[in-house]
Simulated scan of single mutants.
Amino acid sequence: MTSVRLKVAVLYNAPVLPVDHPDAVSEADVVEVAQAVAAGLENHGFESVLLAVRPPVVEVLRSLDRIGPDVAFNLIEGFGASTAAATHMTGLLELAGFAYTGSPMEALALCVSKGRAKFLLRGAGLPTAPGFVVEPGAAVPRWDWAGPAIVKPDAEDGSLGIDQASVVLDWDSACDRVVWIHATYGGAALVEAYLPGSEYNVGVLALPEPEALPIAEVAYEPVEGTWPILTYAAKWSAGSVEDRASPVLCPARIERELAETMCRLAVSAFKVTGCRDYARVDLRLDHRGEPVILEVNPNPDIGPTAGWARALRVSGRDYSATLAALARQAMGRPRMPLRASDLGNRGRGSSASEPDRQR
């Protein structure tokens, strides 16, 4: 007798940007990640169904109700044209009673604003770079630290809005960059001290207790006259000058004491921000060589070629087996009593989120 396979819906945001848009490549990447995750889960006995989510919300619920998954693997990074809406979609899964992987709505809502997360981390005694958030229409304060500043969107990820012009030497240049961010991305800008030291990222895996994965180092080899920062081109334009100038080494070439400190900071940041299952913490050394937290990403790229998966493999763990363990862990968590079927039958019209079975 053939056993019934557990069904997992692999959720990802349907791309909305035109293919010639400068930010389209980062948005399209999630499609390939979803396919890889679905295939990995299939290898470990799950029946995978890919589901690209797009407005209207009610059609997402109806599609999920039709699929009837035992668990949703949540890879949603946005909804429609809104990055922040990924948080609300996660809350919707919670309210609808679906088991799902990844961080809960509270952690996503907190960390979507780098500035708010910074204030919480600092309040918990964790080191962060000095900085401030500038809302649209607000005046840009003058900073009180010595040296340059880096200006970036407060609520975007994937290095969106970061290029060589992000590092500014004076207040006038900072004002110009803030205006550009407000006009281009429509949200607040984060202005913080530029840290001159090496950059690292630490993946965290919680099955169930959080532990740091091997540290990765961004081993910058900048072209003369450029800043050693992880720009959008460095992250998404394979083979570009900035990509070649920012190779990543995992494990990092660092002393044991520094590695232990960064791992401890990463796990502490994971806990303080309320992350769950997996996350990534980015750090950089200040002028004294001390590690400082840049940001906490509660929903990092976990595709097989991404940094988190690379660190996972360096730790000796199997990628597909880890995905399956995360899905099963999510199934065992308590859920809200409201069932998905109570919400999924609302609304009319054709489905805007058609399921596509993974072959």
Rank of each mutant, 00 (worst) to 15 (best):
I293K: 11
I302N: 04
G344N: 06
A340E: 00
P334Y: 01
N345F: 10
P334S: 02
R346T: 11
A311V: 02
P337W: 04
N299M: 14
M331I: 06
T305K: 12
G332Y: 03
I302R: 00
M336D: 09
A325C: 10
E295P: 11
A330R: 02
W308G: 04
I293S: 11
R335M: 04
R333C: 01
Q329L: 09
P298V: 12
R313F: 04
R313H: 05
G316C: 08
D318G: 13
P304R: 09
S315C: 02
D301M: 04
P298M: 11
P337R: 08
R310S: 11
D318T: 09
P304A: 00
Q329N: 09
Q329D: 08
T305Y: 07
G344P: 02
T322K: 10
A321V: 10
A309Y: 06
R346Y: 15
D318C: 13
L323Y: 13
R317Q: 14
I302L: 13
L338Y: 02
A340T: 04
A321L: 09
A327P: 06
Q329A: 14
A321Y: 03
P300Q: 08
Q329T: 07
P298F: 14
G316M: 02
E295A: 14
G316T: 01
P337D: 06
L323S: 10
A340K: 04
S320W: 13
D301G: 11
N345V: 14
P304N: 08
A306C: 02
V296A: 07
A330Q: 07
T322S: 14
N299F: 02
A330C: 04
I293F: 13
N297F: 05
N299E: 14
W308A: 07
A321S: 15
G332R: 11
R335A: 00
N297L: 06
G344I: 06
P304G: 00
V314H: 03
L343G: 14
A327C: 07
L312T: 06
R313L: 01
S341Q: 07
Y319F: 14
P300C: 00
M336P: 00
V296E: 10
A306V: 03
G307T: 00
N345K: 11
W308N: 02
M331S: 07
D342E: 15
G303N: 02
W308F: 08
N297I: 00
G332L: 05
T322F: 01
R328V: 04
L323G: 13
P300R: 03
V296M: 07
G344E: 02
M336V: 08
V296T: 12
G307E: 01
